[in-house]
Deep mutational scan, measured.
Amino acid sequence: DAPDEFRDPLMDTLMTDPVRLPSGTIMDRSIILRHLLNSPTDPFNRQTLTESMLEPVPELKEQIQAWMR
């Protein structure tokens, strides 16, 4: 099983494109984008959230890719 820090906190699946929300939570980009289609909010604190506020986490993405090899 993947380490917890590699798993999306909402869907508990392996992240492939991790992004940091303004709240500091790291999620998979595809999952948070799907959530934003229904509700333009951070799913953990209900603060306003837009796609432009998502910050890529390239170092975590590299760690996940290395773990998958």
Rank of each mutant, 00 (worst) to 15 (best):
T13R: 07
D8E: 03
D17F: 06
Q47G: 10
Q65N: 12
R34E: 11
P9N: 05
P9R: 07
W67Q: 07
R29M: 07
P43D: 02
T25M: 15
F44N: 04
Q65P: 07
E5P: 09
D17P: 01
P56Q: 07
H35M: 12
T50R: 09
T50M: 10
A66K: 13
D4R: 15
D1C: 15
V19Q: 03
S30P: 11
E51H: 09
T41S: 09
I64G: 00
W67R: 07
M15F: 01
T41H: 09
D1Y: 14
R20V: 06
L37Q: 14
P9T: 05
P18L: 04
I32M: 01
L54S: 00
Q47C: 10
R7I: 09
D28F: 10
I26Q: 01
D8L: 04
A2S: 09
R20Y: 04
K61V: 07
L37M: 14
Q63P: 00
E51F: 08
D8P: 03
W67Y: 10
A2M: 14
D42V: 00
N38E: 13
E59I: 10
S52Y: 11
L49P: 00
E51I: 13
D4L: 15
P43A: 02
L10V: 09
D12Q: 14
R34W: 11
R29A: 05
A66F: 10
M53N: 07
M11Y: 11
L37A: 14
N38C: 14
R69D: 15
L33M: 14
P58T: 10
R34C: 13
D42N: 06
D28S: 04
M53A: 07
T48W: 15
E5G: 10
M11L: 10
L21F: 02
T13W: 08
W67C: 09
R29Q: 05
F6A: 02
T16Y: 12
L33W: 05
P22S: 02
Q63W: 09
R69W: 11
R20C: 06
A66H: 12
R7E: 02
E62I: 11
N45F: 07
N45E: 06
I64V: 07
E5F: 12
Q63V: 10
W67F: 10
M53R: 04
F6K: 02
P18V: 03
D1I: 14
D8S: 02
R29D: 00
E59G: 11
R7D: 02
E59W: 14
I32C: 04
N45M: 06
R29E: 03
V19H: 03
I31K: 03
I31N: 09
V57K: 03
R69C: 15
L14K: 02
R29S: 07
D1V: 13
T41Q: 08
I64T: 00
P58C: 08
D4V: 15
A2F: 15
L10G: 02
P56R: 08
R69I: 13
S30I: 11
E5Y: 14
H35I: 10
P40W: 08
P22H: 03
M53D: 12
D4Y: 14
T16C: 15
L33G: 05
E62Q: 13
I64D: 04
V57M: 14
Q47V: 10
I26D: 00
S52M: 10
D28M: 05
K61I: 07
L21T: 04
S23K: 03
D4G: 13
T13F: 07
L33E: 08
T13E: 08
S30W: 12
L14P: 06
D17I: 04
L33N: 06
P56V: 07
I26F: 03
M15P: 01
T50H: 13
E51T: 09
L36V: 05
R34P: 02
P43W: 05
Q63C: 11
E62N: 11
D4S: 14
V19C: 06
S52P: 08
D4C: 15
F6Y: 12
D42C: 06
D42P: 03
Q63E: 11
M27E: 01
I31Y: 06
F6G: 02
P56W: 08
P58R: 09
P9D: 05
A66S: 12
S52R: 10
P22G: 01
D17H: 06
M68N: 07
D12S: 12
T50K: 15
D4H: 14
Q65W: 14
E5I: 13
F44V: 05
R29V: 06
P3C: 08
D12N: 15
L60D: 00
P43Q: 02
S23H: 05
S23G: 09
I26S: 00
D42S: 03
T13H: 07
R46V: 07
S23A: 05
M68V: 12
I64M: 03
D12W: 14
T16H: 11
M53H: 06
N45P: 01
S30R: 11
P9M: 07
P18A: 01
L54P: 00
P43G: 02
L37D: 10
R34I: 11
E51W: 10
P58K: 09
D1A: 13
L37V: 12
M68Y: 12
M11A: 13
I32N: 00
A66N: 14
P22Y: 03
T48D: 12
V19G: 01
R34M: 13
P9Q: 06
E51D: 08
V57L: 13
V57Q: 09
P22C: 05
G24V: 02
M11K: 09
D17L: 04
P18C: 05
L54A: 01
R29H: 06
M53Q: 10
P22T: 02
S30F: 10
I32L: 06
L54C: 05
D28R: 00
T48N: 12
N38L: 13
M53C: 05
M27L: 06
L49E: 01
M53F: 04
F44S: 03
P58V: 09
D28G: 03
D8Q: 02
P58E: 09
A66V: 09
R29L: 10
R46K: 14
D8A: 03
R7V: 07
F6L: 05
P40M: 10
R46A: 14
F44D: 02
E55Y: 08
S39M: 08
L36A: 00
M27C: 08
E59P: 05
I64Y: 04
N45A: 06
M27T: 04
R69A: 14
N45W: 06
T13K: 08
M11G: 09
E55R: 11
G24P: 01
S23V: 01
E5M: 13
I32R: 01
T41I: 09
T16W: 11
D12F: 15
D4Q: 15
D8V: 02
P3T: 04
P9Y: 05
R29Y: 08
E51N: 07
W67E: 07
E55C: 08
I32S: 00
P56K: 06
L54G: 01
E51P: 13
F44E: 03
E62L: 13
P40L: 12
M11S: 14
L33T: 09
E5N: 13
L21E: 00
T41M: 09
I31A: 09
D12C: 15
S30K: 13
D12M: 14
I31R: 02
K61H: 07
V19D: 00
S39L: 06
L49Q: 00
D28L: 04
Q63N: 08
D28C: 07
D17Q: 05
M68H: 15
S39A: 08
T41G: 05
L36K: 00
L33Y: 07
K61G: 06
I31G: 04
N45L: 07
L60K: 02
D12E: 09
